[in-house]
Simulated assay, not measured.
Amino acid sequence: MSITVPTVDITAYVQDGTADERAAVAAAIDKACREVGFIQITGHGIPEELTDGLADAMDEFFALPLEQKKTYRTPPGINRGYTPPKTESLSLSLGVEAASRMNDFFEAFNVGDGSSDYPGLDLPERLYNENVWPDAAPGFEPKVTAYFSEAGRVARTMVEIFTDALGLPAGFFDSYTDHSLDVLRMNNYALPEGTDVKLDGDLTGMGEHTDYGIVTILWADQVKGLQVLGSDGSWNDVSPADGALLINLGDITGRWTNERWMSTLHRVKPPVIDGTIQRRRSAAFFHDGNWDALIETLPQTIDAEHPNLYPEPVTVDEHISRKLAGSRAGTANTSATREAARVLAAK
């Protein structure tokens, strides 16, 4: 059974719609979060020139020679800068890789909020790292910064919609997100010319994983590759409609809602056409919450028929650090047992 990613127009929240219009959007988001966990949104308000600029910036950087790109690489514990191909394995963030193989063939560049963006707060620099900007791609920083700001606005709008959809008081999540760990990861799925690679079923663009935080705002090419796990255990292709952004839930939201809304497993399989890998680009804005926020299951999601699936509270820092230790440092995450079971049951 295939799944359909629903499309929701969020204009009512972007342009101060009526109470009834906003209620209709919140109800549609609630339904989509319960049934799929992936959503396409329109009416988000990001101008096309900014998404075009983001794509241009990515093209400018990723076209650089590999050895030059590697000069912007940071250690695994720093979630900024360049990631070369085959230096990560996203499935290890769930602890399901048979061996500690770093085999995902994508390359990426990460930027995010640093501690200097929150003057007056004593934030740990190991999480709120300052950015590494590539001077070899002079158009990169201004175009990426412009998109980052708008993607953050959309993420905060989605949290506002979540608040209404869950029947929570206005501003409920503010204290969890006022110095949120926000990261934009720009991904390039391609292999340099002359790379010796076997185009077989084991070649992985990005391994099976769930996102870590509250919500992800995803811009992507309309090139096939992204696959979402359905409730029947099948993998389903997903690509955005014209002008749409893809939204998916992260683990923190799954914990908060006692899996009434579940973080959806997804992966990227290499788009192979005529025996070659077709290039694919995406940019994921992760809105993960404050590093020191304590995440506990919302009481209204617990009852006799729905016992608490996450009785042990966890901080955002604890959760994200375990996941990153898997994907970036090769240490399998043994705490993601529920998500790992879903991967292992997939067809």
Rank of each mutant, 00 (worst) to 15 (best):
L184W: 03
V215T: 10
H209G: 01
A190I: 04
D182C: 14
V238R: 00
S239I: 15
L184T: 06
K198A: 15
D182R: 06
T195V: 05
Y176P: 01
D182I: 04
L181C: 06
L218G: 04
A241M: 11
L203V: 07
V223T: 13
L184D: 09
D178H: 14
S234L: 13
Y189K: 04
S239D: 09
L229I: 07
A220H: 07
K224N: 09
P192V: 01
M186L: 14
M186S: 10
W219L: 12
N187A: 07
T177Y: 04
N188E: 06
Q222N: 12
E193N: 14
A190R: 12
D221E: 11
V223S: 02
D242V: 11
T177P: 03
V183H: 01
V215W: 11
L199R: 00
I214F: 14
V183L: 10
Q222K: 08
G205L: 01
G201N: 07
L218C: 08
L191S: 12
G207R: 06
G213K: 05
E208Y: 14
V228T: 06
T204N: 05
L229Q: 12
M186A: 09
T195C: 03
P192L: 02
L203N: 00
M206L: 15
K224W: 07
D200Q: 01
G207W: 14
D232T: 06
M206F: 15
D221L: 01
S239N: 10
Y176M: 14
L218N: 02
Y189F: 15
Y189E: 03
L191M: 14
T216N: 10
D237H: 13
L203M: 05
H179S: 03
D200A: 04
L229Y: 09
T216M: 06
N187I: 06
S180V: 02
W235Y: 10
Y189A: 05
D200R: 00
L199A: 04
M206T: 13
E193K: 15
D211P: 08
Q222C: 07
G225D: 03
N188S: 12
K224E: 14
S180E: 08
T195F: 09
L229D: 13
H179C: 02
G205W: 02
S175D: 15
Y176F: 07
K224V: 08
A241I: 03
D237A: 12
A190D: 14
L218Q: 00
D182V: 09
G225L: 03
A241R: 04
S231V: 00
L184H: 03
M186V: 05
G225R: 03
I217K: 00
D196R: 02
K224I: 10
V183K: 07
E208R: 11
L226G: 07
Q222E: 11
D242L: 11
V215C: 10
L184Q: 03
S180A: 13
D178R: 07
E208L: 02
G201E: 06
D182Y: 00
D211K: 00
D221S: 10
R185Y: 11
V223Q: 08
